[in-house]
């Protein structure tokens, strides 16, 4: 399927970008690597008449140990090793995303803001003609959780949970102002409009606090094949160790709900104890109350949920 028609804007600076964004408002989308947006455009899923390319905006390519510009590609996270010495998990996770070819285009910003997924959403116009429209494509109701108006499409990005356990914040900017949010606050929990960016607001960069250096971090994702496939459950865990004693535990998951989820209230209770598989088990059973995947990806919800426990157990087993 060919792309729909649109006007491509190619601003050369941050200021110019924000100005164009303000001008076209809701009639425009930002275009980073396009690896998430353009497949949806080809399927005519909410295409806009104006695309604002971020390709030539140098301010979005900042990169040092604690800062990742929104336009840094996943391939760059893998290939430019120096700044990653502090956070070796970043190249590791990047390698688990999409495929080598896609990673040369895919950006960190685009990854955090990638659209949610659902078998009823990621389809062609022909498919929607045959099967009908759901909430996320302008229809009356959800087809997964029948009878609901709300959308349950799943957030599947892999970087978000990892950056969340690293305590990352995001810097957002529009023509009027700049604001900084903890990464988790970027997500709305609404499958139809999964991000809380305002009209014309740009994600400029991601910052990781220096305090996160020295955290032990692990990430596991559920997918049928060893490449290409999106997460159908992803678990990121970070903690500090002194000997076997664990502190500062953080857990975030993806691929299970409309937004990545974190569990600070639960994890903080496990500080100061020796890490063990039993602890992983205990944490899993506490998390279970908050994890309710719906049947909108390939694997059945029960299996996706079970893998959260399995992944936690496996990570803890490796750590202790």
């Amino acid at each position: 399927m060919i792309l729909p028609e649109f006007t491509l804007h190619q601003p050369k600076s941050l200021a110019e970008t924000l100005q164009i964004a303000q001008e076209f408002g809701g009639d425009s989308d930002f275009l980073a690597g396009g690896s998430d947006l353009l497949p949806n455009y080809k399927n005519r899923l909410n295409p806009k008449p104006h695309l604002i390319s971020l390709q030539h905006v140098a301010e979005l390519r900042a990169r040092d140990v604690f800062t990742i510009g929104a336009m840094v590609t996943l391939q760059e996270l893998i290939q430019r090793p120096l700044p990653d010495a502090a956070f070796p998990i970043l190249p590791k996770v990047s390698k688990m995303i999409a495929s080598p070819l896609i990673r040369t285009r895919a950006t960190v910003g685009g990854n955090l803001l990638a659209n949610n997924r659902c078998v009823y959403f990621n389809q062609s116009p022909f498919w929607h003609q045959a099967v009908g429209l759901c909430t996320k494509v302008g229809g009356e109701a959800c087809k997964v959780v029948t009878g609901q108006k709300q959308c349950y499409a799943t957030y599947c990005g892999d970087l978000a949970p990892v950056l969340m356990v690293l305590g990352a914040t995001v810097l957002l900017q529009d023509r009027q102002k700049e604001r900084r949010l903890p990464l988790i606050e970027l997500y709305s929990g609404d499958g139809s409009r999964p991000h809380l960016l305002q009209q014309g607001e740009l994600l400029v960069r991601i910052d990781i606090p220096q305090a996160s250096v020295g955290l032990q971090v692990a990430y596991r994702k559920l997918r049928l094949r060893g490449s290409l496939d999106f997460s159908e459950a992803g678990v990121a865990v970070a903690a500090r160790f002194s000997g076997k004693i664990l502190s500062d535990l953080r857990i975030a998951v993806t691929g299970l709900a409309q937004a990545p989820l974190a569990f600070p209230e639960i994890t903080k209770e496990f500080s100061g104890e020796p890490a063990s598989e039993a602890m992983a088990q205990e944490i899993s059973s506490r998390l279970a109350r908050f994890i309710h995947p719906v049947k909108n990806l390939n694997f059945l919800p029960a299996y996706r949920k079970e893998m959260v426990s399995v992944f936690l157990r496996q990570i803890f087993r490796e750590w202790c």
Partner: peptide, 11 residues
Amino acid sequence: LLEYKTILPVD
């Protein structure tokens, strides 16, 4: 070819 799962080279 994303959702119809053929075996990939890594597998």
